[in-house]
Design a protein around this nucleic acid. Structure first.
Lengths: 174, 174
DNA sequence: CTCCTGGCTTGTGCTGACCGGAGCCAGACC
DNA sequence: GGTCTGGCTCCGGTCAGCACAAGCCAGGAG
């Protein structure tokens, strides 16, 4: 259409002929779409591992922390690992899995957007940089050939083998 | 601490001495943290512009669509522009602003994560590629020198001029 | 003038996210 | 045995997000 939206290809072109039932954005939001889940992830990235620290630093109640942490473990974003401090019994910590680490672009994307668009100065109270070189850190949409991909150059197509890739109508995708 | 978390620098190192009151992740979630807001954004990226199309394609009611679209316009993620089809009165469409386009990494990040971790085959029903070269599209965390930045190489520090940058305790950041 | 249509608004009610506070339980320490 | 602590669970209640359904309003078509 114009240069400011993605291009829908194949059976997707007619947007009125398919539903978003299997939309990956929707399925992601189903499991990590709450405020507390995102903030717990932020804390995990900051290095927090223990129950009370999560609850206190995210400023949620124990009940919510327990419920949310349990869900995050269930969906595989966190795992529990036992630990034992001298003189106490065995407890367990919540640590990130690969799946949890894969959500980093989402949380950093929110971080960057909040810093840029939701603070008076457009800078925000914290900065992110690369330990190795000191360069400022950003979240970018890129193709595998390293080209930056603005919205207008983004193409969406059905995965091979799906109904919509064969031009059928009425399918479900995302 | 270990290689799987970010490094907190300056006054941030002691995580127990500062609060996340001004956290940009939190402020971002305050305005675009709902399921319907994210899905409306997805639709906007797909090229949707009209009220009924948004409501139908996101599968929310008119009431929710009206409320959420109004909020998104208020926070500057969308703008209304008047249009007129022949033989009807003037109405208005909802189009993305620069601020709205800046949320693309967040929505694509959820898209990628959902495709990878919330579908049986780990691929998802849709694919994203670069129109110009056909390459698969990803969301990446990079520094300004183009180095990929894994979580373990990410450093978080206070913005210059903030309380925490001067080593004071009890500040508020993110 | 009435009818129709798109873009809402309003009303009712459910559910899930969240809070504050109290209680529980296992084990270490005494 | 009793006490303390971390990691929960349970209870009662509020509020926001959402669905379903009805109503409203401006303006073009007839």
């Amino acid at each position: 259409m114009d240069q400011h939206t993605a291009v829908l290809e194949g059976g997707l072109a007619d947007r009125s002929r398919w539903r978003d039932e299997a939309c990956p954005v929707r399925s992601a939001l189903d499991v990590v779409g709450t405020r507390s889940a995102m903030l717990l992830l932020r804390e995990a990235y900051y290095g927090t591992r223990r129950f009370q620290d999560f609850a206190a630093r995210v400023r949620i109640t124990d009940a919510v922390a327990a419920a949310r942490l349990r869900e995050l473990v269930e969906v595989g974003v966190l795992t529990t690992v036992p630990y034992r401090e001298p003189g106490t019994r065995t407890r367990h910590e919540y640590v990130l899995t690969d799946s949890g680490r894969d959500l980093l672009p989402v949380v950093l994307g929110l971080f960057a957007w909040g810093s840029r668009h939701r603070t008076p100065d457009g800078r925000g109270p914290l900065e992110l940089h690369h330990r190795d070189c000191g360069g400022a850190v950003r979240v970018e949409v890129r193709c595998e050939h390293d080209h930056p991909v603005p919205l207008g150059e983004l193409a969406v197509s059905p995965a091979r083998g799906s109904r919509l890739s064969r031009g059928a109508a009425g399918g479900a995708a995302g």
